[in-house]
Design a binder for these strands. Structure first.
Lengths: 167, 167
DNA sequence: AGCGATGATTTAAACAGTTTAAAGAAGGTT
DNA sequence: AACCTTCTTTAAACTGTTTAAATCATCGCT
């Protein structure tokens, strides 16, 4: 790959600043978690793209699959994002035809969100994409380790959401 | 909170679509991981903002703290993003004065990235922000559980990066 | 009944993060 | 010298995210 030949000539640099070079650097949980999730998003996206969704939208679909007719605010809270974020996401997904907004009949301040028939058709694909990603991600782990990981992640997520809430 | 009073009148809706309402929904690893990371990003951002950084930039700083003078490509690979993403991130951080680009002396195709003095000054703050976020995130977990979590996350990340690479 | 407070949603504006595809620049090879 | 390869950057097009302000409906109180 024609790079080694140059690497050797590199001893003359003379700009070493090792007084600040950190030790092998104990990797932090924060970076690690964010990075693992970045990888997951990418892989998941690749598996979701065939259904016309992006990673991040699947959470909305799954939440509605469980409880159809959630309000925008409830969805935002459930996914841990702010209301305007959810408004935009819902808007995009509505434009794609996966869900629809209907005002609540009793309290017109509320907007409830429902899966459309085409949206419901995607649920299976979404579930499969998630499972496939999970399979790739957990290669070499035992089922018990996977359960442990999920349990720990749930604790971490719950802790962090609590910390966020304490604004 | 004046919402309960309305919730009761809601039995008449008549638009139930329970034929598709999923069971309590076994939460997937994929969603869980992505969501936990979203929370982490938010909390970490809050702790980083005082140093003028955004979550995601800290990874670049830490990588350079360990090995100053990495190439743009090496940074991208290390953080698991594509080259143009890294170009943009580096550009922003250079504009903020935390790092600088210098062409390699021997191979002008290579751009090496170095921490500036102000950048190096931030390292301590960044480390503290990470530690603080970690502390919040792991409340109620034993040290051993945290180590387990990190070990499992490393496996997952490594698996996923391998899967991504197999383009 | 009307009016002001409350609450939910949306708009607007401003960033960061990401990707793919294409263009540029420099090296190495024949 | 011409060509192919490698690394970086540009360009274009998205999604995700936030804060602050605007909109609008309901609720509670006088």
């Amino acid at each position: 790959m024609g790079k080694k030949s140059k690497a050797e000539k590199k001893a003359k640099n003379g700009k070493k600043k090792e007084e600040f070079t950190a030790e092998p650097h104990e990797q932090e949980l924060a970076s690690l978690l964010v990075q693992a999730a970045r990888s997951m998003r990418t892989v998941l996206s690749r598996n979701l793209v065939e259904s016309g969704l992006y990673a991040g939208q699947d959470g909305v679909m799954l939440a509605l699959a469980e409880t159809d007719g959630l309000t925008a605010g409830a969805l935002a809270a459930k996914l841990g994002v702010k209301a305007p974020t959810m408004t935009r996401t819902i808007g995009r997904m509505e434009a794609q035809g996966f869900l629809e907004r209907r005002p609540d009949e009793d309290d017109a301040r509320l907007t409830k969100v429902y899966l459309t028939a085409p949206g419901r058709d995607r649920l299976q694909t979404i579930a499969e994409a998630g499972q496939h990603s999970e399979k790739l991600a957990t290669r070499g782990l035992t089922e018990k380790q996977v359960r442990t990981l999920m349990k720990l992640l749930r604790v971490v997520d719950s802790n962090l959401q609590a910390a966020r809430a304490a604004d």
